[in-house]
């Protein structure tokens, strides 16, 4: 005896929500960087072999393999090496689009950090633009890059392309 054929459409979706919580540890080198941010300072690490300054200090210099962790304080201003204008909305976005995300080579560092530039029209963003950090008020400072709200234009003349060409 066989069952009559099932005329219903196949099951195509099964909701199985998963929630997993993680307690992430920053580790030794990142902690140094984060603690400095709580003091309005940007502290990187210099590699003892290639002498490049990394932000943050690193457990292994990517080109030498040894810890790049001799502490070096760098400036809170620098040069935009490249950027993009984000026009797509997504859940974790810090602002409604459009907004400008930039790579900034801080004065004294050898590799750019990523942050946002505010206070300019998106179309006015450009490579070579000089920018400085806008810090949060003292009572909001903490061990996070969010201690810097965003970067703003300094009004200095743009750096020449050659100054950033090797950081792209």
């Amino acid at each position: 005896m066989s069952a009559p054929p099932d005329e219903r459409p196949p099951v195509t979706v099964l909701q199985a929500p998963v929630r997993l919580d993680y307690t992430v540890t920053a580790g030794h080198h990142l902690s140094t960087y984060l603690r400095a941010l709580a003091d309005r300072k940007i502290v990187g690490g210099r590699c003892p072999e290639c002498h490049k300054v990394y932000l943050p200090a690193r457990g292994a210099c990517p080109t030498c393999g040894v810890p790049a962790d001799a502490p070096v304080e760098v400036a809170d201003q620098g040069t935009v090496t490249t950027f993009c204008v984000i026009r797509i909305p997504f859940d974790a976005a810090p602002f409604p689009p459009p907004y400008v995300a930039v790579a900034i080579l801080l004065d004294g560092a050898d590799m750019p950090i990523f942050h946002l530039v505010r206070g300019i029209e998106p179309d006015a963003a450009r490579m070579g633009m000089r920018v400085r950090a806008v810090w949060v008020p003292d009572d909001q400072l903490g061990p996070t890059l969010a201690s810097i709200r965003w970067f703003e234009a300094t009004g200095e003349p743009d750096a020449p392309f050659e100054a950033i060409a090797s950081h792209l």
């Binding site: 540890t25 580790g27 030794h28 080198h29 990142l30 690193r58 457990g59 292994a60 393999g65």
Partner: peptide
Amino acid sequence: VTREEVELVQ
């Protein structure tokens, strides 16, 4: 708590 991944491996 002192080592993130690269600090474990290096």
